[in-house]
Design a protein around this nucleic acid. Structure first.
Lengths: 240, 240
DNA sequence: ACCTGAACACCGTTCAAGT
DNA sequence: ACCTGAACACCGTTCAAGT
C-alpha cells in the first residue's frame, strides 16, 4: 500500500501550504451561508477544511479576524453598476447592488451591516457614491452627509430584510393572520387601523419607498443649492 | 451563633422568591451597560445576583430570552415626547427620544437595533408615529411605509453611532489624522477630496442631516398628496 | 416552588511538540 | 514554516437532588 494515501499528515506539508488566508475565509463564508454566524466556530471551520483547529491560527489572528475577513469577502462581491449619467438612477443602482449582495448572502450580511470595518474594499463603493453626488452638484462635505444618510437607511432596511427569516414569494407570510389580529386588538387606534400593513412586509416595496424618499429629498436639495448659487452669482456678477 | 446568618441558603427560600424575571433582566442590563453583550453570560449574570447559574432558568427560558428581555427593558425606557401639533417637529422629537435612549445605553442598544422583537412595548412608539403621520395627511398604508423608512434610517445611524466606541466631545477623534492621510492617498479622487469629512464623524450632525432629508421628503409628499386630492375633489365635485 | 451542584457537550486560545 | 494534540478557562443547558 502507498505510504501516505489517506492518513492525515502531520507536520509541515511537502507541497506548499494546504491552507491560505483566502481558503480559510472562503470556507468561513460557506459555513455562515449554510448555518448562520452561530454555525461558525474555529473548530467547525477547521473541520470544514479537514484540518486541526489550531492550524487556522497560522493564517488568521483569531475568530474576530475571521468575521472581519468574511465581511470583506462580502464587500468584494458587491457589483459595481455601470453609470448611466442620471445620478438619481445611479444612486439607486448602487443601493440595489448592495441589496442584491445581501440577498445572495443573507446570513453573512449582518456581519457587514453590524461591524464597522476599516476596509479598503469599502472605498470603491464610497468613491462611486461620492462621484455621483458630485455630479448632482453637492460639494464634498454635503456629499459625505448624503452618503451616510443613504447608507444608514440601507443598513437599517437590509438588516430588517435579512433577519426576517426565509420568505415566501417576497413576503413574509408566517403567522400573518395572527399578527394582524393581535395588532387589531392592541388597543392602539392607529396601530389597529394600519394592522394589515403592519402585519406584512414587502421588503422590495419598502426598499423602493425609502430610496424614493431619499432621492427626492436629495434632488430637492440639489435644486435649491443650484438656484441659490445662480442667484448669488447674479448678485456678485450681474449679466452684462 | 445564628443558624443562617451569612451562609448561602439552599432550597426554597422562606420569605418569597429571591429572584424575579424583572430582577434578572435589570441585572442583565446593568451587566451589558458595564461590559457589553460579551460580558453577559448566564454565569456572570448569576454571580451578579449572588445566585447559582441554574436558578436563572426558573425565571427565563434561556439566554436568548434574557437578551430579548434586555431589549424590551430598553424599549420601555424610551421617553414619549409631548406632541406639539407640528408633525414635523414631533416626528423629529420621537426620533430624538430613541436616540437619547441609545446614548444612555450604548452597549445595550445593538440588541434593540439588531433583533426584531415581537414586543408589545414597541407598539407605543409605533402608535405615536402613525398618529403623527396621519395628522400629516398620510393614509395608513403610506404611513407604515414612512415609519419603516425613518426607522431603518434610525437603526442604521444609531448602530454606527453606538458602535463607533467612546467619543471625545461628540466626535470620534482617535487616529483622525492617520485616517485622513490614508484616505487622501487612497488613489480614489473623490474619496481623497472628501478625506477630512470622511475621516471624522459628528454623529449628531449626521443624525440631523438625515432627519432633515427624510422630513423634507415626507413634507413634499404630503403636499403633493393634498394638492392631487383637492384637484380630484374639484373635478368630481365642482364648486357651486 | 424554587434553588443547587455535578455533569455534558461544547467554546476560543496558549503552548510545547512534532516534521 | 506549518500543522498538531493536550490543556486551560470558559460557555449554555439538562437533570436529579435538595429543602
Amino acid at each position: 500500500m502507498e505510504p501516505d494515501a489517506e492518513v492525515p499528515r502531520r507536520g509541515r506539508p511537502r507541497g506548499g501550504p494546504r491552507l491560505t488566508r483566502e481558503k480559510v475565509l472562503e470556507a468561513a463564508l460557506t459555513l455562515v451561508d449554510r448555518g448562520g454566524t452561530e454555525a461558525l466556530s474555529m473548530r467547525s471551520l477547521a473541520a470544514e477544511l479537514g484540518v486541526d483547529a489550531m492550524s487556522l491560527y497560522n493564517h488568521v489572528a483569531n475568530k474576530d479576524a475571521v468575521l472581519d475577513g468574511v465581511a470583506e469577502l462580502f464587500l468584494g462581491r458587491i457589483g459595481q453598476p455601470e453609470p448611466t449619467g442620471d445620478w438619481r438612477a445611479d444612486v439607486r443602482a448602487l443601493a440595489a447592488a448592495f441589496r442584491h449582495a445581501a440577498a445572495q448572502h443573507p446570513r453573512a450580511a449582518p456581519l457587514v451591516l453590524t461591524r464597522q470595518l476599516e476596509s479598503f474594499k469599502g472605498l470603491v463603493g464610497t468613491e462611486s457614491a461620492l462621484g455621483l453626488l458630485h455630479a448632482a452638484g453637492f460639494p464634498p462635505e454635503e456629499a459625505v452627509h448624503a452618503l451616510r444618510a443613504v447608507l444608514a437607511f440601507l443598513v437599517g432596511t437590509l438588516l430588517r430584510e435579512v433577519s426576517s427569516g426565509p420568505t415566501f414569494s417576497g413576503q413574509n407570510l408566517g403567522g400573518l393572520e395572527e399578527r394582524r389580529a393581535e395588532l387589531e386588538n392592541s388597543g392602539f387606534p392607529h396601530v389597529a387601523r394600519a394592522a394589515p400593513h403592519l402585519a406584512a412586509c414587502n421588503h422590495e416595496a419598502e426598499f423602493d419607498f425609502g430610496m424614493d424618499l431619499l432621492v427626492a429629498a436629495l434632488e430637492q436639495r440639489a435644486r435649491a443649492r443650484r438656484s441659490t448659487a445662480t442667484s448669488a452669482e447674479r448678485r456678485t456678477r450681474p449679466p452684462r
